[in-house]
């Protein structure tokens, strides 16, 4: 089963990440090589401590690999200065974390437009409206995060991740803190971003149901890619995880 990847939105080449030194050194990633195709929705799965978050952070320019290379588009992140990395995150990468995604002093709308505002650019109003309508937050735009439910907060975060039309969106367990209905809503929204706007999304998850919304699942164990699956279903993912012994 080989599907030709037209172009990679992001890829990691022989990425190693070691935390600490000497006896205390932990090898979180050992020689990971993986690519994420444009317009594809990829889920990353694996046991706790397998290096999922670490890989995501390296890919997103939040952390630097100990060795190897990371590309967003054609740009090698390992050669960039802190300043250039910051700009890249702002303009070409979107994020959704598990929790604490929003600035409490800003309204939902301001949180969504934050990356564009930071860049000092004008918000593309029609794009903004499309996103807001897709996530269904129209009537909540002027509320502060504290006045939103957990699911709404995550949808605001997702909208923010998309607002600057980034090359790629990373999400680290975005549904981890949500009940199943809110989780489904968020996943549906991410799916539609891929289907309707050709957005590339990489999502870390523990939940096989969540992973089934993706086009492809990459499995990680002990800091290595140990397999992948196309067109996943909940059952197949669960089976595979069992075979990994997780």
């Amino acid at each position: 089963m080989t599907v030709a990847i037209t172009r990679a939105a992001a890829r990691a080449a022989s990425v190693r990440k070691v935390y600490g030194r000497g006896d205390a050194a932990v090898e979180a990633l050992r020689d990971v090589t993986v690519a994420f195709g444009e317009g594809e929705f990829t889920a990353i799965m694996g046991p706790s401590g397998s290096g999922k978050s670490t890989l995501l952070h390296c890919l997103a320019g939040l952390d630097r690999p100990t060795s190897g290379q990371v590309f967003i588009g054609d740009v090698d992140l390992t050669t960039l200065s802190d300043r250039a990395l910051t700009d890249l995150r702002r303009d070409r990468v979107g994020f959704v974390f598990q929790a604490f995604n929003l600035i409490p002093t800003l309204s939902a709308e301001e949180n969504i437009t934050l990356p564009v505002d930071i860049a000092g650019r004008k918000v593309d109003r029609s794009w903004f409206d499309r996103i807001v309508d897709t996530v269904g937050l129209r009537d909540r735009l002027h509320h502060r995060p504290a006045e939103l439910s957990g699911g709404q907060q995550q949808r605001v975060a997702a909208a923010r991740a998309l607002v600057s039309r980034p090359t790629i969106v990373f999400a680290d367990e975005p549904t981890g803190n949500l009940d199943s209905r809110s989780g489904e809503e968020l996943l549906g929204f991410l799916r539609s971003a891929v289907d309707e706007h050709g957005q590339t999304i990489v999502m870390v998850t523990h939940d096989a149901r969540a992973a089934s919304h993706a086009d492809r699942v990459v499995f990680l164990a002990d800091g290595d890619v140990v397999g992948e699956m196309r067109e996943p279903t909940t059952e197949r993912v669960l089976d595979h995880l069992k075979s990994l012994g997780a």
Binding site: D82, R83, T86, D87, R89, R90, F97, N101, L114, P115
Partner: peptide, 15 residues
């Protein structure tokens, strides 16, 4: 955490 988030979404050190 808030500061980390701002930096993550692209706020520069100067900002």
């Amino acid at each position: 955490r808030e500061l980390g988030l701002l930096r993550a979404v692209g706020m520069s050190r100067a900002q």
